[in-house]
Computed example of a mutant assay.
Amino acid sequence: MRRQVVISGLVLALLAGCATVRESRINPVNWFGPSEAVAVSDTGAAILPTLAPRRGYPHFVDTRPLAPAISDVSVSRSASGAIVTATASLPAAGYFDAELVRVPSAAPGTLSFEFRLRPPPGPARTGTAPQRQITAAASLSTAELAQAGTIVVIGAEGARQVRR
């Protein structure tokens, strides 16, 4: 009887310590919080050069414009690290070739992406709100994710960020 009481007490003490897993970085649910808008200064602190060369192509200049407004950013766990997903709200339907382009960040511990896309080639209909949204994603390795505390997605009218 005495042995069962001691074992039960140890098990209960161990389970009471598990309550802190909820706030730890082990829990994938709290890796990154909800996205929030970022103020963009006139000096360009949050907005980096609009014509960023792609990695591996030093003479290639991306001529696609930035997405007008970023409406949501989320980070999902994957087998190789994480997937950053961003949604842009557009003025009309018909935009295509959306991509999150990695750009250098001024702040340490911050990964920055520009949301670039191509506008429709001709006149486009307005459409409903869901028709005027486009989503792009980028994959991050575990090593890249370990160095990031903040992920920022930049658009023409502002930026959104998610933090750990």
Rank of each mutant, 00 (worst) to 15 (best):
V5R: 15
Y57W: 06
T85A: 14
H59T: 10
A79D: 13
V75F: 09
E99L: 09
A146W: 06
G81P: 10
V153F: 02
A124G: 09
M1D: 07
I7C: 12
V84P: 11
S24T: 13
L10W: 05
R2G: 02
I70W: 10
A129E: 14
V162W: 07
R102L: 10
A137M: 09
S80Q: 13
S8C: 03
A148F: 08
R54P: 00
P28N: 15
R163Q: 14
A69C: 04
V40S: 12
V84D: 08
F60D: 08
S78D: 09
R2Y: 03
P34V: 10
V153W: 01
P49L: 00
S24M: 02
N30P: 01
S35Y: 04
L14E: 11
F60T: 10
G17T: 07
T135K: 11
R54Y: 09
A156Q: 15
P28M: 05
R116Q: 08
R102D: 01
S35C: 05
S80W: 02
V29S: 12
I83H: 06
G56N: 03
P49S: 01
A39I: 06
A138R: 15
R132G: 01
P68M: 09
T87A: 09
R132Y: 00
A137I: 07
L66H: 12
L111N: 05
T126R: 15
P104F: 00
R2S: 13
G9S: 12
L100T: 01
N30C: 11
T110F: 02
S112D: 15
I151C: 03
Y57A: 02
